[in-house]
Deep mutational scan, measured.
Amino acid sequence: GIPATNLSRVAGLEKQLAIELKVKQGAENMIQTYSNGSTKDRKLLLTAQQMLQDSKTKIDIIRMQLRRALQ
């Protein structure tokens, strides 16, 4: 079985993952909103794209940590 310490770690990672998935969803929504907007929305679009990139990276890292914890 999986050690108890790993189980609480997994629960924490799953919570983090859920949050990051919401951030990713929000960033994707912002990108959709701003991509057909005016030029003043360009900065917001770039910010949203950066957020999305960061979020995807975090999600990958969390998933990797989850896999390790579940081994």
Rank of each mutant, 00 (worst) to 15 (best):
T5V: 11
D54I: 07
T33V: 11
I19R: 15
K22T: 07
L17K: 00
L45P: 00
L13T: 00
S55F: 01
E14I: 15
S38I: 12
I2E: 14
R42C: 15
E28K: 04
I2C: 15
L44Y: 06
N6D: 15
R68N: 10
I31A: 02
D41Y: 04
K56R: 06
E28A: 03
I59R: 00
I2G: 07
L17F: 02
T57K: 10
S55Q: 04
I19L: 12
I59V: 03
A27L: 10
N36G: 09
L70I: 09
Q50P: 00
E20G: 01
R9H: 14
S8W: 07
D54H: 05
L45F: 09
K40P: 09
V10R: 06
G12K: 15
L44Q: 12
Q50I: 10
R42N: 13
L13H: 01
L70M: 07
G37L: 06
D60G: 09
L44D: 03
L52R: 02
R63F: 09
Q32H: 11
L46P: 02
M64D: 14
Q25S: 06
D41S: 03
R68E: 14
A4H: 11
A18F: 06
I2V: 11
M30H: 04
M30S: 03
S35L: 13
L13Y: 03
I62M: 02
R9E: 14
L13E: 00
R68M: 13
R63Q: 08
T33R: 13
D54V: 15
L44C: 12
I59C: 03
R9L: 15
A11P: 04
L21V: 04
R42L: 08
T57I: 14
M51G: 02
T57Q: 12
N36Y: 13
T33S: 12
Q71N: 07
K56S: 08
M51C: 07
S35I: 11
A27V: 13
Q32M: 11
D60Y: 11
N6V: 12
K56L: 12
Q50E: 05
I62K: 00
R63T: 07
N29W: 06
D54F: 03
R63V: 10
T33L: 13
D60C: 15
E28S: 03
K58L: 03
E28Q: 07
T57H: 12
Q53H: 12
L17I: 02
Q71C: 13
R42G: 11
A11G: 03
E20F: 12
I2D: 07
I62Y: 02
G1L: 10
L7F: 03
K22H: 06
I19W: 05
K15D: 06
E14D: 02
V23G: 02
K40I: 13
T5Q: 10
I61L: 09
Q50T: 08
A11T: 05
S8K: 12
Q16L: 12
D60Q: 11
T5H: 14
G26N: 14
V23W: 03
S8Q: 14
I61H: 08
A69S: 03
E14P: 01
S55K: 00
R9A: 12
Q53E: 11
L21Y: 06
L13A: 00
A69W: 04
G37T: 07
K43W: 08
Q32L: 08
R9T: 15
M51L: 10
Q25I: 08
Q71R: 08
S55E: 00
D60W: 12
S35K: 07
Q53W: 04
A18W: 07
Q71T: 08
K58G: 01
Q16M: 13
Q32Y: 06
Q25W: 08
Q50W: 06
L7C: 15
A11Q: 09
K24I: 07
E20T: 05
Q25T: 09
G12C: 15
I19A: 13
G37R: 04
Q16R: 09
I59T: 01
